[in-house]
Design a protein around this nucleic acid. Structure first.
Length: 1004
RNA sequence: GCCGGGAUGGUGGAAUUGGUAGACACGCAGGACUUAAAAUCCUGUGAGCCGAAACGCUCGUACGGGUUCGACCCCCGUUCCCGGUACCA
């Protein structure tokens, strides 16, 4: 092998790894385990672009590094292969989503293999594979068969609940369950029929059917979860979303709200990510208070408040328009007004409601609530600023302390009563202070905030009109999707004694419940989900199956366990595998999963732990978010040419001449900016550069005009360009034909046949066409997508891997710019030339390395190790470059140095290092078994330190001293130094600071 | 509005966390090799000033202040950018 040939080398080793199963991994009790995981990719039809592998490269480097440090490393890859895009495509083309998904995955795998990742491909999983989703269905079943016991603070099998029912009824059960669950005794329980008992348990199960207000998306024909809705439209596709009451499968994630918050303190994630989860769960500490209703002795309004202390400042109540009491308490006189308001809110979309935060609106019900503390009657309003889905859907309004209440009070001219002596200006705005002492506040007058709350809560609890309560923003998760391409829910329906359908679970022996074929991937005529189309799809030929499928997050909420034992068809993974691999030590992925995948996964994990299937409370110990790679779009500027016609021609402009007779004129970026400046007026008009461009453009236009007029003398008058920012259109140009912002004009012409040949004019600068640049999202429509395959073809995977890491800190968002890649490519070739000269001669010798060479090597080992440990991959790449540059200058070709360096670099550039490792005489493929080099202090430390000598904090000289020089000696010598003497100018310094191995500062 | 992150040469970025700001790389300029180009190698490259030269000077890490012998780093205030979130009672 003479010259470095990345194609040959990379292909050879990728084949070798595959043939020899080099990256195969098995349980090995004699080694510590380490689990590195990348977030589950969805295999989209567009394939990978250079942004995707960023995290995969980082995790691969880390995994290989850990392996060389003696860990048994699990580093798998697989596919979250159910999902909307494949189904949308199926709807359009009629192709089965399984087929397109299969093709997309094949393409992904090919691309991933091209990059040389050390995945154990034998462990690959796909959520849409029945062998996989059997276990997703199984976990669903386990959830169905469990309830949440608040006393033990964990999920338990439903049997422990029914045993308790038989023993003592549900009086002492403290469970997370439906609000309306009735009380019953053991006797009553035993008196129930089996069906009645079963129905009762449905109130407790961790997955259950309920009528829920859901995000209905007509455009997708499906329900979406909160995290799939952004700004009132669907995250995928951007279709409008509306609120609708539907019968849905739900997951009782709220049972885990507190544990989901507490667990965050035990894991190493970024603070911002944890904060997002905390906000999403939205814990607030407060109290429930019951207000009576005047004239409705049997009813009351329950409110949740975080400020019970302000209860004497309540001057009105507000209910959500959807609140169930509205219909019952509205007086005859106010009925019309309330109806009108309800009608108005219903028509407002969620989006309008959000956009319209400023406007105050509401309507009076005519009814009055009674404040239990002072028996005062306050009017009850409805208003859409109160959300039905939060708390109880009712608010006690304290206008002196809450700005929204204040706005409402002002608008409807309601009283504003201050309740703390520290409150200020309550007639111009609300003051939410907790300072001062209470006034106008009955039993808490004169107390402080800290004193008042316990008094109020005790008072309420005594009278059973309220209690302390912790409320969460988190809602139970809707689990049904009215779609085809997802896991079927393993449930069938039997008619109960009233003829109503009652859900029953499929037994485990009937799993997996496979997706049936359908003729179309659309809802049925009657509005049933697509599964309703499946011919004869019935349980035991007679019972209706559940027709909705599971949401996208179902399959990804437990997948990391499947990798531990990917082919097990007895269990989702064997206890042996689970207890060995336990949890993910390093999880890498984007922030977009902050409140979706990462929350649901933690939920399912906690559930599986409660039920004894897994050992760890938290599944992902450390998590790193790689920054998004943005696109860097290139632009060309095309003048908008206007043609005037000869007077009296009377023809529409576009008919004057054929469209292609008018050339396209493109102007280079800098000149375009200058051209635009001519309208700014002032001095720029006379700027010679501006004048120069103006003349150049006008000359060209004049020439064009003459040419055209020659051909169409009777029609064309003159050609002109508007001035200012409207003079040209900026057009995206494919970044792959632009290098260092210089447009490849020939390629540009071939991609745009309409402007080929003579039909395009380019106004250049320095003989080049320079494109404009903007950072945007990477997408096809912006022509800024860079395909890793192209880069690999041209520079090789090793170079791409190094370059992606070199680009900057892993966690930072950055635009992709291929410009710098030559630097890493040069580095790789320089590295190669330490082993081979240009004639292909082997240069490596067995000579003993010098001290300098050892220092270069060990310095690099130290730096690279520290950088990998702190995930600072970009600086590690620099360290390699420095190292190779220095070894190059030292003309070092010594085996003792180079073989260590090869191992050191192997996590970053696995192919070239395998090749050279073998060339150094090692058995092929054994690099994976090599141990990470260990740096030695003796080679790294210098004997002298070069002290920067500052005068008043500015460096004026440097002087070297042996490391063990005492500060007094340093000071003496520094003061004697010529440069220092010059600055001292005969004076005595005020102070001399000597920091050993750092700096000397002489203060004048 | 609130929460989180950030702002350093023409560009991507570095700086042992209070101790020589700009490592490394791109780009650019000049040179060597070559008939030429590519590749490769060498030199220079924050801005400005002085100069024959200097391991000369001044300014310089978004802006304004402060603490310190010494500040990209700590504190106070301001501007802008990115991400998240939003009537949450």
């Amino acid at each position: 092998m003479s010259e470095y040939n990345h194609r040959e080398i990379e292909q050879k080793w990728q084949q070798f790894w595959e043939d020899n199963q080099t990256n195969r991994v098995e349980i090995n009790q004699s080694k510590p385990k380490f689990y590195v995981l990348d977030m589950f990719p969805y295999p989209s039809g567009a394939g990978l672009h250079v942004g995707h592998p960023l995290g995969y490269i980082a995790s691969d480097i880390y995994a290989r590094y850990k392996r060389s440090k003696g860990f048994n490393v699990l580093h798998p890859m697989g596919f979250d292969s159910f999902g909307l895009p494949a189904e949308q495509y199926a709807i359009q083309t009629g192709q089965h989503p399984a087929l397109t998904t299969e093709q997309n995955i094949a393409r992904y795998i090919e691309q991933l293999k091209n990059l040389g990742f050390a995945y154990d491909w034998k462990r690959e999983v796909r959520t849409s594979d029945p062998g996989y989703y059997k276990w997703t269905q199984w976990i669903f079943s386990e959830l169905f068969n469990s309830w949440y016991n608040n006393k033990t603070d964990q999920a338990e099998p439903i049997e422990t609940l029914t045993q308790e029912f038989a023993h003592r009824g549900n009086g002492r059960v403290d469970a997370v369950c439906d609000e309306e669950t009735p009380h019953f005794t053991a006797l009553e329980w035993k008196a129930m029929s089996e069906e009645e008992q079963y129905k009762m348990t449905l109130n407790y199960r961790l997955t259950y059917v309920a009528d829920a207000t859901v995000n209905w998306c007509p455009g997708l024909g499906s329900v979406l979860s909160n995290d799939e809705v952004k700004d009132g439209v669907s995250e995928r596709g951007g279709f409008p979303v509306e609120q609708k009451l539907m019968r849905q499968w739900m997951m009782r994630i709220t049972a885990y709200a507190q544990r989901l918050i507490d667990g965050l303190d035990t894991i190493d994630w970024t603070e911002s990510l944890k904060e997002q989860q905390r906000n999403w769960i939205g814990r607030s500490v407060g109290a429930m208070v019951k207000f009576g209703i005047d004239g409705h002795a049997e009813r009351n309004i329950e409110v949740f408040t975080t400020r019970v202390d302000t209860i004497y400042g309540v001057t009105f109540m507000v209910l959500a328009p959807e609140h169930e009491l509205v219909a019952q308490i509205t007086t005859a006189g106010q009925q019309a007004e309330i109806d009108a308001y309800l009608e108005k809110t219903k028509r407002k979309s969620e989006r309008d409601r959000m956009a319209d935060v400023k406007t105050v609106s509401g309507a009076f019900t005519g009814a009055y609530a009674i404040n239990p503390f002072n028996e005062e009657k306050v009017p009850i309003y409805i208003a859409d600023y109160v959300l039905a889905g939060y708390g109880t859907g009712a608010v006690m309004a304290v206008p002196s302390g809450d700005q929204r209440d204040w706005n409402f009070a002002k608008h409807f001219d309601l009283p504003i009563v201050p309740i703390l002596d520290a409150q200020q200006n309550t007639d111009t705005e609300a003051d939410a202070t907790k300072e001062g002492k209470y006034i106008n506040s009955g039993i808490i007058d004169g107390l402080t905030y800290a004193e008042a709350t316990p008094v109020l809560v005790a008072w309420m609890e005594e009278r059973k009109i309220g209690k302390a309560k912790i409320n969460y923003r988190l809602r139970d998760a809707v689990f049904s999707r009215q779609r085809y391409w997802g896991e079927p829910v393993p449930v069938y329906y039997k008619k109960d004694s009233n003829g109503e359908p009652l859900p029953y679970l499929l037994p485990e022996s009937d799993l997996p419940l496979e997706l049936p074929p359908v003729d179309k991937y659309l809802p049925t005529e009657t509005g049933e989900p697509p599964l309703g189309r499946a011919e004869g799809w019935k349980y035991h030929g007679q019972y209706e199956y559940e027709l909705s499928t599971m949401p996208g997050w179902a399959g990804s909420s437990w997948y990391w366990y499947r990798y531990m034992d990917a082919h097990n068809n007895q269990e989702f993974a064997s206890p042996e595998a689970i207890n060995y691999w336990r949890d993910v030590d390093l999880y890498l992925g984007g922030t977009e999963h902050a409140t979706g995948h990462l929350l649901y996964s933690r939920f399912w994990n906690k559930f599986l732990k409660d039920r004894g299937y897994v050992p760890e409370e938290e599944p992902f110990k450390k998590l790193i978010n790689q920054g998004m790679i943005q696109g860097r779009s290139s632009f060309v500027y095309r003048f908008r040419l206007g043609i005037s016609h000869r007077q009296g021609a009377g023809t529409a402009l576009k008919e004057l001449i054929p469209a292609n007779a008018l050339p396209a004129v493109f102007i280079s970026k800098k000149k375009y900016d200058l051209w635009r400046r001519q309208t700014e007026g002032g001095s720029s008009y006379y700027d010679p550069e501006v004048v120069g461009v103006r003349e150049e453009v006008n000359l060209l236009i004049k020439k064009l005009e003459e040419n055209i007029r020659e051909k169409y003398p009777e029609r064309v008058g003159y050609v002109s360009i508007p001035t200012g920012e409207y003079s040209a259109t900026d057009l995206h140009v494919d970044v792959n034909i632009v290098e260092n912002d210089v447009l490849d004009i020939e390629k540009f012409k071939t991609t745009r046949p309409d402007i080929a040949g003579e039909n395009a004019k380019f106004i250049l600068e320095d003989g080049k066409y320079i494109c404009g640049v903007e950072v945007e999202k990477m997408s096809k429509s912006k022509f800024n997508v860079v395909n890793p395959d192209d880069i690999v073809e041209r520079y090789g995977a090793d170079t791409l891997r190094l370059y992606e890491m070199f680009l900057g800190p892993l966690e930072q968002a950055k635009p992709w710019n291929t410009n710098g890649i030559d630097g890493t490519y040069r580095f790789i070739r320089k590295f190669w030339r330490l082993f081979y000269n240009d004639n292909g001669d082997w240069l490596v010798t067995d000579e003993t390395p010098t001290k300098d060479e050892l220092k270069v090597l060990h310095k690099t080992i130290k730096k690279v190790q520290e950088d990998i440990e702190s995930f600072s991959f970009n600086t590690a790449v620099s360290a390699f470059m420095v190292c190779v540059n220095e070894l190059g200058s030292l003309k070092c070709h010594k085996k003792a140095i180079l073989s260590e360096l090869v191992v050191l670099l192997s996590p970053y550039a696995p192919h070239i290092t395998e090749e050279l490792y073998a060339a150094l005489g090692h058995e092929a493929g054994t690099l994976a078994l090599a141990t990470f080099p260990i740096w030695q202090q003796e080679y790294v430390t210098d004997d002298v330190f070069e002290y920067p000598i500052q005068i008043n904090g500015k460096v004026r000289a440097t002087i070297s001293f042996p490391l063990d020089t005492v500060p007094a000696d340093i000071q003496n010598e520094v003061l004697a130094n010529e440069t220092v003497q010059k600055w001292l100018d005969g004076k005595t310094p005020k102070k001399v600071i000597v920091v050993p191995k750092r700096i000397v500062n002489v203060v004048l």
